[in-house]
Amino acid sequence: MSATEVDPATTNSPEAAMASRARFAALVQRQGAFAIFVLVMVVASFSFDSFLSRGNLTGIAVQASFLAMLALGMTFVIMTGGIDLSVGSVFALGGVLAAWGSQHGTLVAFALPLGVCGLIGLVQGLVIARGGLPPFIVTLAGLLFARGLLLLLTDEGAKTYKVPAGSSFRKLAQSDLLGVPYPVLLVVLFFAIGALVLHRTSYGASVLAIGGQEDAAELMGLPVQRTKVLTYVASALLAGFGGIMIASYTSSGVTILGVGLELEAIAAVVLGGTLLTGGAGTILGSLIGVLLLQVIKNVINQVGSLDSDWQAVVSGSILLGVVTLQRWLTRAERT
């Protein structure tokens, strides 16, 4: 593939070339989604007058906020080299529990979903970390379990719990501060905390170390199992919180939500430059991945003649394109 004619005496130039290529690879991996995001934003703002309007941008941000919660947890999970397929179901379950709970008070609306979702995350984490079962299968079962529980609670999906009209719970997602909706503020807050946790706590370091090389992390004496369990708990909690937000936003517990959302979250994280093999990635990248997906949705909606289904096609293609590019470049880096 690469024409590397190496004269052992003068390895400098090809090495330098390789280094610059590696740097470019890292750049694409880290900033590729950002570049596409900016590009789409620029094109969209020239193409549609209404695109940059306050209302539209706020809409995009609010719509993206739910997925963002899932993507944040997923980022941590993927960084440890795992995957969490259960978040879509857990998200929906959280929403239904929150809507049901809000009938018994706002506190219950928060505590109940977080408790149940946290428990699901804990079980998944324990089975993965201690039982050594593959995350893919465990969280796949978690997906089925959470959705089954959800259907059980809602009379096979027939019953929709409403948030009482006067409930303060509605404020969570329906109010704003200085014009910025609460969900958006919450996402910013959570991502800031997430970045802080990743970069400023020993837990964060363990996450990166485990993803980089699990054996190495263990040899360095890091608490591998505990870190993994915590990560799956965090992912489930964040998904549950996303559910709480959507319950407040729609004032009801909608049961059909969240199907396939785990895959969108994974797509956003991978787009944001986190390698599925773990060990590399950024919190901010995932946020950009989420925004990119949402902006694409928005743009396709704006093009009246285009079917909204283009959104899925474009998202899928971008995901594959970015992954292929990542792969080619990292391969160049290795050889």
């Binding site: 893919f136 895959l263 991978v270 599925l276 899928g316 995901l319």
Partner: peptide
């Protein structure tokens, strides 16, 4: 590309095309 990612992308895009 890891099988799970490659087919995930195709899953998202494939259903989009189907809907189109």
């Amino acid at each position: 590309v890891q099988p799970i990612v490659a087919t995930l992308g195709l899953m998202v895009a494939g259903r989009g095309v189907a809907n189109l």
